[in-house]
Design a protein around this nucleic acid. Structure first.
Lengths: 342, 342
DNA sequence: TATGAAATCGTAAACGTTTACGGAAGCCAT
DNA sequence: ATGGCTTCCGTAAACGTTTACGATTTCATA
């Protein structure tokens, strides 16, 4: 069922059929309707390879996700809601969204190289940005439209949207200070992912604002998951003087942290204050419930998609070019985990 | 940088270049090496649209994942490890794997229709199979190679691999009976996903084997996530006589269940036995640790990929055609959550 | 009526591959 | 010298689109 078959069936030329289907102006209204009707009736759908070859465009956007130990455990569904938001925008423009999952046995930059070389996608969303991310230079040099979910250290001349790690760290510290804490620990990822550095910066700055000296011994590094939380809890308990509060960079850490504390009869919220990171399906069901921060993930996805389109020349009539360097706000969700008295 | 440029640069015909790159036999060894070397040096990669158009094949496999409320919260990373396994096989055959994420605002069958119509992929892996899954009939009729992760009720003439829900339910029941329980509840998803029915069947059969009467009041239905676990815990406590044990179809339910029990001062493992489903990053860090079942997800992915290839004519020399109707084994991981005395 | 503009459509080239086909050259046996 | 293999390579068609270009018709206007 090619366009040729359809044209033969309607007894008009394939050029006209193509123009009718693509909404070109120079085609009679009546014939357009005939074409559309026949296409639907016969179940004709344009062959993507054909159009791609001709137009040099694939109508596909890739969302690259790494399955590193750090990001694999996005419990509570981080990416799915974002994806839905992205997809809702793309669908209006007949763009298909695919997730490109880079395994642990391949370098992200290598993987990306393959994707780009094969001209698989028209644009890209990358995530889990590292401090100095080679993918960004690569995409800039190849002039592939892209947007990063998460900024690198040199958040230079490329579009990115990032969560408000700095703001979250500051809000958490301020809140804890307000509750009377001064020995405030922080948990960051051990990896090179940039958000850890941003988070740490926000923490330091907030401490400084409150006139509290920064103590490097209160910075704990491990995996951004349950296991990491457990290990950090052990380290926290071993540290003297023991912190009275801890701020987590990742909500999955909370469960492991809780577990380890329980084993030493330390009850979060009563004996030590804990502020998690992102509100997830789990945070409400922990005991005590986790004080954390809410993100409108779907809206984030929508903004991500719109921003990407604004960097693509083919869409500049709908989405005029704009510089996107956006910090996405997060809203405090008070729980019980930071509410104990000192 | 097209094949024409490469041919011109080497001063040979494009046909020879193509044959050299594709490992055809009728090309001189020396010229082949020259071609390969030049291709690498000049960074030539065949345009996918061109080959797809010519060969009618895309070298891409799609892994369809639905982001329904049921599957979105695959905490502990279910899909990522499976994905890696699949990818490790495909990479050897120069196949690209993409994840096709169907949002909640679109029917899975509709979404699949679009994917297939645009000839996006050469083969498909579908998951979250419902009881009567229209996608299966559709793919069979269109003769698209596919494999289902999860069987439908009429697990008929199509390839599938499924987790051993029946075995897990039976093992759990037997274990609980061995510990002295007879009032054993079961938590299943409220949706039409088929695994719930299979799980329930295994439960019923195991009860019958042990001579325990099936009590419909002990079947609890809700979402397969933390929220659902919480609701089910409430329902369990309200049920008289109260069950002394409960078997979960989903590990994410455990946290909500625990939370609700704690609110009523019921301690899992002491006052009520709980057996979760899949071992995840969380199960070890719950308090008490969750008794559950381990899956080798990477191997599952590998088998999934190999099985799919065995249904594709283009690969029948490497993977001879075979009937795939496979129940994937799961191994008990004893925790503390079922160890209380009655 | 002649003229030009507007509306509509057909023709054919082009996108980058793969591959069937045939031709040229080399070699060996007759 | 002829014929028949084998080895290697070039030619050109084909995949299914889109689109620049030109042709035809219609229609209003001078």
């Amino acid at each position: 069922m090619s366009i040729r078959d359809l044209a033969r069936h309607l007894d008009i030329s394939i050029g006209t059929v193509s123009r009718a289907l693509n909404g070109k102006t120079d085609v009679n209204q009546e014939t357009r309707e005939r074409v559309l009707e026949a296409a639907k009736r016969l179940g004709y759908v344009p062959n993507q390879s054909g159009r791609s070859l001709r137009q040099g465009t694939t109508n596909t956007i890739g969302f690259m996700i790494e399955s590193t130990i750090e990001t694999v455990d996005t419990g509570g569904g981080f990416f799915m809601p974002v994806f839905e938001g992205v997809q809702s925008v793309f669908r209006r423009h007949h763009l298909d969204l695919v997730a490109l999952l880079c395994g642990t046995d391949e370098e992200p930059a290598e993987y990306l190289n393959r994707v780009v070389a094969r001209r698989f996608v028209d644009g890209l969303i990358i995530s889990a940005t590292t401090r100095h991310d080679p993918r960004i230079d690569f995409l800039l040099e190849r002039k592939i439209p892209f947007i990063a979910l998460g900024r690198s250290e040199t958040a230079g001349d490329y579009p990115w949207i990032d969560l408000d790690f700095e703001g979250v760290a500051a809000t958490a510290v301020n809140r804890l200070v307000g509750l009377g804490h001064s020995r405030i620990a922080i948990a960051v990822p051990a990896s090179d992912i940039n958000l850890g550095y941003v988070f740490l910066d926000g923490y330091k700055r907030a401490l400084a604002n409150k006139g509290i000296a920064f103590n490097p011994d209160y910075v704990f590094r491990s995996y951004a998951n349950e296991e990491g939380g457990y290990q950090i809890a052990s380290a926290v308990l071993a540290q003297k003087p023991t912190p009275t509060a801890i701020v987590l960079v990742n909500e999955n850490m909370a469960l492991g942290l809780y577990r380890r504390f329980y084993e030493s009869d330390i009850r979060p919220g009563r004996d030590i204050a804990v502020i998690g990171f992102r509100e997830s399906t789990q945070s409400r069901f922990l005991s005590p419930t986790l004080t954390c921060f809410r993100i409108s993930l779907r809206d984030l996805g929508i903004k991500l998609a719109e921003s990407l389109l604004s960097t693509m020349p083919a869409f500049e009539d709908h989405y005029p070019h704009e510089k996107v360097e956006l910090i996405w706000p997060m809203e405090l969700v008070a729980g019980e985990s930071d509410q104990g008295k000192l």
